[in-house]
Design a protein around this nucleic acid. Sequence first.
DNA 1: AATTTCAGTGAACAGTTGTTGACTTTCATT
DNA 2: AATGAAAGTCAACAACTGTTCACTGAAATT
Lengths: 239, 239
Amino acid sequence: MMRTMTLRKLRASRRRGSSAASEDATGGTGSRDERKQRTRRALLDAALELMQGERSFSSVSLREVTRSAGVVPAAFYRHFSGMEELGLALVDDSFKTLRRSMREARAAALPATHLIRRSVETFLGYAHTHRHHFQFIAKERFGGSSVIRFAVRKEVHLFTSELATDLARFPLAGKISTEDLQMIAALVVQSVMMATEAFLDMAPNEPDDAAQLYQQTEKQLRLIFIGAQGWRSKPATRA
Amino acid sequence: MMRTMTLRKLRASRRRGSSAASEDATGGTGSRDERKQRTRRALLDAALELMQGERSFSSVSLREVTRSAGVVPAAFYRHFSGMEELGLALVDDSFKTLRRSMREARAAALPATHLIRRSVETFLGYAHTHRHHFQFIAKERFGGSSVIRFAVRKEVHLFTSELATDLARFPLAGKISTEDLQMIAALVVQSVMMATEAFLDMAPNEPDDAAQLYQQTEKQLRLIFIGAQGWRSKPATRA
DNA sequence: AATTTCAGTGAACAGTTGTTGACTTTCATT
DNA sequence: AATGAAAGTCAACAACTGTTCACTGAAATT
């Protein structure tokens, strides 16, 4: 709870100094709009960075964000009405990159059976290269403000729906109703997300735990597909 | 971000007034030790209450806690060294009540097949009557400080282990290694916790969604058991 | 009955927070 | 070249934060 540098000193060393501000975005070239988008991204990135490791989104302050974006607090309001709006923008960003990755993976023509493995692989790839985005999602899926929480859930739901339509292309999916496919997809997404989150904040010097986690998750997926194989949807009881 | 009552007025109306302080614990009868434990609980309860709905644990301030516990900030340090220690105490409390419930459920002699249903029922019962405790666990499982996060995970792991030993008593569990039982138990716990969390912060005026969620979760469990039925553990590849 | 122990008090501290209004400066339009 | 828009600055505000210290008063010990 102690800062070593006073506000004044920090601000004095800001212009092209960048000693403490990690994401300085002011200055530079480009059209007015480009420059604006740049500091907007600086704010988003700063917020994401600040929650790495120990903190939750709701514990990150507006001033902290502007500080490490290299901008004065008041400037924040030129981009967002408050932290909640920034949070929603982060949800958007995170899923935009995720969906892009998955769409590319899907684009490669599929031998059906390898499709799941490929999907899981690209998902893990996403989680690895965009780990900040993923960890943000993982945290805000349960914690924090309800509006952000629901935004995340809506996106996750959409994501599982896409997986469900992929599953429908499977040969042995004939006996399974679309509703049940959705339920199976939810189970898969759940497991993979959980495992990924656990994996990401594991101590990197304990590779044994990581291997064990990976094996367990693979087994879980296999068990789910065995279950799906034996599944028989009741003829939809609809009124 | 605006308080309607000034600090002075609030504090003036505190003694036996209890207009804003919901968990006033000072005064009353009992031995010294009893009185101490009472305000300790008041602090814990206040913290739990403050995070209901919108907030995460890390966004609740020490002063807020003492304020709604009806105690002066400095008194906090007679019980905890800081908010983190209080958080760990909350983890402990939450799982203590959960484990007590489950142990009782297990005590009733089991017709084996009904045991799972009974377990899920008591778990849901716990989540319903101790919803504050459960929601705390659900939030801090991913968000917030790592020491609390790991404390929660350790307890969840222990919990799934207990479920795994229960599963071992099942007739058709013969072909399954203990390691694989653990992995199946993890899958079950995961699904039930997820569903419960989703259920608890659903709008209470939308019973259709609740019913649909319940059905889906039941299906998921059934599918998992179908999978378990078809599961065949490889003869343990141990060195 | 005298003394120690200690949960809770009250006040002060330095620092941080969100939000505001009037300002400068720079780009894009007229 | 004059004019407008607007991204970012500066300074100030009231409120809140965690932590400290010497203190009080009542229960527990002697």
